[in-house]
């Protein structure tokens, strides 16, 4: 069915997307909660900065990451020297680029679902002896689950499609940073690869559709449990 090269590309893409979402999710939930439930000076600025990856050109995001996290970058040099962690030109860097680009999508979806929760229910939990942390874990988080699920899938799909920031930050290295879109781009540079490109395009579409179907199914089940709409 799939050639070994195609399998490698797909697995790499899934790994990049998986880690981008997994690491981004807790941060996105925290950010969404802060934006939905608290007010602090400079909130509008924070809100704006979080949304920047949605509006600035991906190349700019990739370049910024290169400056910050590259081997000579301010943070990158520190991480490399102290912890031996490097994001330069490897799949971890690709995951960072994808995660940063997908982050605003996750925050938006989760924030909306937190804002939709009736705060009076959280207050009731407080009067029943629950600390704010327990309220968050037992009330806010489960009730925000539909938004968390859809935000996660959206971000995962966005990660699989990430191109500009990735190629700018970690380049296009076969087996390391060459995810699906980068592989398509590479093949387009070579004449006579239309069939190979078509196969990758179809694989892309299949993965994206599968993710959407799964998320839709999960959201419906969760929503049905909470709101009582028939599942």
């Amino acid at each position: 069915m799939l050639s070994p090269l195609e399998v490698e590309i797909v697995l790499l893409s899934l790994r990049v997307g998986f880690w981008a979402v997994l690491v981004g999710l807790p941060i996105a939930i925290a950010a969404a909660w802060l934006l939905a439930r608290t007010s602090f000076p400079g909130k509008a600025v924070v809100d704006g900065v979080l949304h920047l990856p949605l509006v600035v050109p991906p190349v700019i995001v990739g370049y910024t990451l290169l400056v910050l996290l590259g081997r000579q970058g301010v943070i990158g040099a520190f991480l490399d020297n102290v912890f031996g962690i490097s994001f330069a030109f490897n799949w971890k860097g690709a995951a960072v680029a994808s995660g940063v680009m997908a982050f605003p999508l996750m925050v938006r979806a989760i924030r909306l679902s937190i804002e939709a929760i009736d705060r009076r229910i959280e207050t009731a939990a407080r009067t029943l002896g629950a600390s704010p942390l327990r309220v968050f874990a037992t009330i806010t988080l489960p009730l925000a689950l539909p938004g968390i699920l859809s935000g996660t899938v959206l971000a995962f799909a966005r990660s699989l499609g990430e191109f500009g920031a990735t190629i700018t930050f970690v380049s296009n290295i076969p087996g390391e940073t060459r995810t699906l879109p980068l592989a398509v781009f590479s093949l387009m540079q070579v004449p006579g690869t239309e069939a190979a490109i078509l196969r990758l395009v179809l694989i892309s579409i299949a993965i994206a559709l599968a993710a959407l179907v799964v998320s839709e199914y999960l959201s419906r089940r969760v929503a049905a449990r909470i709101r009582g709409t028939p599942s």
Partner: peptide, 20 residues
């Protein structure tokens, strides 16, 4: 004292049950 440390039960006008 925050509400959770007052040892009070509160029945509100609305039921405020946890829907999940």
């Amino acid at each position: 004292l925050p509400p959770e440390r007052r040892g009070i039960g509160y029945v509100f006008q609305e039921d405020r049950l946890f829907p999940h």
